[in-house]
Design a protein around this nucleic acid. Sequence first.
DNA 1: TTCCCGGGTC
DNA 2: GACCCTGGAA
Length: 308
Amino acid sequence: MATQFTHTQADRLVGEAFAMRAPLAAWWQSHARDLPWRFGRTTPWGVLVCEVMSQQTQMSRVVPYWEAWMERWPDAAALAGAAKSDVITAWGRLGYPRRALRLQECAKVVADEYDDRLPDDYDRLVALPGIGDYTASAVLSFAFGRRIAVIDTNIRRVLSRAFLGEESLGGSATPAERELARLVLPGDARASVTWNQAIMEVGATVCLPKTPQCDDCPLAAACLFLELGWPHLGQRRTRPRQRFAGTDRQVRGKILHALRELPAGSVLAYDDAAALWEDRVQLDRCIASLDEDGLIEIVDGHALRLPR
DNA sequence: TTCCCGGGTC
DNA sequence: GACCCTGGAA
């Protein structure tokens, strides 16, 4: 990996990060949201479930789903043995339901290959279905207390603003962003976990994309972005706007929602599905793609149901 | 009404 | 680089 910063720059970054640690840790103590998977109240598997659910949904919406999910399927083995239809139904309206199926696939591997215990090394975690770089790193840091840089868009935004004085660009994380995250991470494992959680929390609640709340920010005293007067604030959104209305995603959501509302095991007649959407070509395409994804089954060539 | 703006897969 | 979902906030 090529070095992105000069020795002088790296020294400055490490020094500034060290100065931020105490105020950031103090802020975390008093401002961390009391989410049920925090502060050692769940298992590594519970942390993984919460991270997968939070990949796509605000924490406030995740909380009730996570609590019901963990009560019903407390560990990987329990989830591995569940009916797919139950898994899809319990995922409810969290969104992106293919992830519910991947989470169950992940549970099967953990139960079968790892004796129902989540592996605690990066290579094995990232090889699990539905687990990429972010989730593997988050589990290592938050569940196992390892020292590893966690990189998501919140953390990228906060670090880029505070240390470089600029907005994080769109797309995937750059080598420079990854090196920055590694440079500023405290050397002590416990301190690194607090750092990761607190930086992420600042990004979620204070250092917002369009409206940073600098008056409430524990990093304000050292923040280069604030010092420079918010240059090009919000200039680059993390990715081009993704519309929803009228897309296949909306149609797929309507079909699955109708199926979840049905009594368990019952079938949705094609005519009832057709009533959900005017464009028959698009409807048929979405039915086919849901079938390919394993989210529905087609019965007698026509009616729909959730897979067993 | 528009905005929010996610990580993983193929 | 395209695709996958949602509902509450602004």
